[in-house]
Design a protein around this nucleic acid. Structure first.
Lengths: 152, 152
DNA sequence: GAATAAAATATGAAATTTCATATAAAATGA
DNA sequence: TCATTTTATATGAAATTTCATATTTTATTC
């Protein structure tokens, strides 16, 4: 988005990750808002696109946010007719969230656009970087997850 | 933090970036809160550590947040005695933010811990990944910034 | 050099987010 | 089985964040 000052921040790993994420998402998030959605709602649609009927807790984890916030986001999406709640038969604590037809349609649309956007992002990189970036990030995530478990 | 479902999300570049950023920062952000700071406040301290006397607008940009929010964060940090505002002589619109002694001390402390934490993160990666990750992210940021300009 | 535009910061009000905790259902265990 | 603990979700209240816009100062343009 801009150049960081000098010394520390501009080459600090956590800054680079946050700034890359922010910069890479920015354009697409603008598009999400054009369609009348907020970013967390788009994340829910994307998760349900992959697997309909996820629980609130799972949606929160995959969408990188807290459960109580996700509960309210689902409230709004439900009012808007994008998803419906159904309690899990077999475990009454669980609330499963399903796409409505409208939600399904929007999710298909946006996932398509997301893929196109990703392609255009990757094409702005060198071929070597484009090829390596996703596997690298996956390995980073993996190593973070295992060290997290180790630290519990 | 957890494994994403299947198909789309779990290998979507923007998800991988957001999730890596989140996962990589998590432990350190816990530490930030232990010291009684919130993440945006830590970001301000880090920016001012690099270059004291930045403007509100610059702090907002480097800290990846909106100006009005930064104004209020500086309000709080000022009340807490971590920074002081001084208006720029030469341009009365600008407010420059400076570390107090206490702010300075905290920023030195936290930047030190951030560097240690970064080292430990990198050591969890393969040597090849550890060596490449920062340059790769810098190139990604670069290419995003230039394409941003191109799209204006 | 006056009028207009632009830049930097601040602020009210609405909306969202967080934090702690309530509620309810299922699992555990004595 | 009954009591206790754990898991899943919801919710009130406080705090933060956003959005639009006000205010002030500097730049620009005619």
């Amino acid at each position: 988005m801009a150049q960081a000052p000098e010394k520390f921040v501009s080459s600090y790993l956590l800054y680079l990750l946050a700034a890359s994420s922010e910069a890479a998402s920015h354009q697409f998030h603008v598009r999400v808002r054009e369609l009348g959605l907020r970013v967390p709602e788009w994340r829910v649609l994307a998760c349900l696109f992959d697997q309909d009927g996820l629980m609130i807790t799972q949606l929160a984890r995959f969408s990188l946010m807290e459960q109580s916030r996700m509960t309210r986001i689902i409230d709004q999406m439900e009012k808007r007719g994008l998803v419906v709640r159904r309690s899990d038969k077999g475990d009454g604590r669980r609330v499963r969230v399903y796409l409505t037809d409208e939600g399904q349609e929007l999710s298909v649309q946006l996932v398509g656009e997301a893929k196109d956007h990703e392609t255009s992002l990757l094409s702005a990189l060198s071929p070597a970087d484009a090829e390596r970036i996703k596997p690298s990030l996956l390995r980073l995530l993996d190593s973070l997850n295992s060290s997290l478990i180790a630290n519990d």
